[in-house]
């Protein structure tokens, strides 16, 4: 579904990603773990078109998408839930979702109302708060809204950047359960970047460890989580 080959990216003169390659099969949840500054967020930005990669290829469902603008990549079926949520505080919850409608939303059976029903099923809190302005939501609710907003475009692949960051510990597990539920119900492929290794290892089918802009280890989450060398060197638990 998503194949990344020899990806290089960075900001201006500063290279961050160096030769990153991996692939994500359809319907899988793949985790990317690593410390601060490992290049996880840059990887997400380079995949979704927020920044243009300097070299390499990104294939989405067999089509090259590297270097395309973000709005085109969303249209092709890959949605990005950025770090820090980036919801729209001055719009109501419902408007936050409405503004994210694309051609794919209206083409889907039932259109936007059907998508809205699915979202309210997954996150009943958002249905309760639909007429509240975004700024009045708690951190966890804002994160739910950010994920829901990405689902409006009916993505085939969803990129989640630190979904556990800045939300109440009680909600972290619920958030990861919701991610699994999204995959189960919608068959969406998930690439999730996390510092919370425990949760990411719990829900992922496969994980990659990043350090200094490179992937330094890959494999089955059980094997990675039980390898004392990797845990000590990269996961710090």
């Amino acid at each position: 579904m998503l194949t990344v080959e020899g990806l290089h990216a960075g900001y201006g003169e500063l290279p961050v990603l160096r030769d990153v390659s991996f692939s994500v099969a359809a319907g899988r949840i793949v985790g990317v773990l690593g410390a601060n500054g490992a290049g996880k967020t840059t990887l997400m930005a380079a995949l979704s078109g927020l920044i243009a990669p300097t070299a390499g290829r990104v294939m989405l469902d067999g089509k090259p998408v590297q270097g395309l603008p973000a709005e085109t990549i969303v249209g092709l079926g890959m949605s990005h839930v950025p770090q820090g949520r980036r919801i729209f505080p001055g719009l109501t919850v419902r408007e936050n979702l409405m503004v994210a409608r694309t051609k794919a939303t209206s083409r889907a059976p039932g259109g936007f109302p059907a998508v809205l029903d699915t979202i309210h099923d997954l996150f009943p809190r958002l249905a309760e708060r639909k007429d509240q302005l975004g700024w009045s939501l708690s951190g966890g609710e804002q994160q739910m809204l950010a994920v829901a907003r990405a689902l409006v475009a009916r993505p085939k692949v969803i990129l989640l950047d630190e979904p556990s960051l800045g939300i109440a510990p009680l909600l972290v597990e619920a958030m990861f359960d919701a991610i699994q539920e999204i995959r189960r119900r919608e068959g969406i492929t998930v690439l999730v970047v996390e510092q919370n290794a425990e949760q990411a290892l719990r829900i992922s089918d496969e994980v990659h460890i990043m350090e200094l802009g490179r992937i330094v280890a890959s494999g089955d989450p059980v094997a990675i989580g039980s390898d004392p060398e990797i845990v000590r060197a990269y996961l710090g638990t």
């Binding site: 709005e71 969303v74 249209g75 949605s79 409405m98 503004v99 907003r149």
Partner: peptide, 19 residues
């Protein structure tokens, strides 16, 4: 709504497919 989305978060607007 798209104008206000840009005002509130330009990155947020870009990632949901607003030109």
């Amino acid at each position: 709504r798209a104008f206000k989305a840009i005002r509130d978060s330009e990155i947020g607007a870009e990632v949901i497919g607003i030109d």
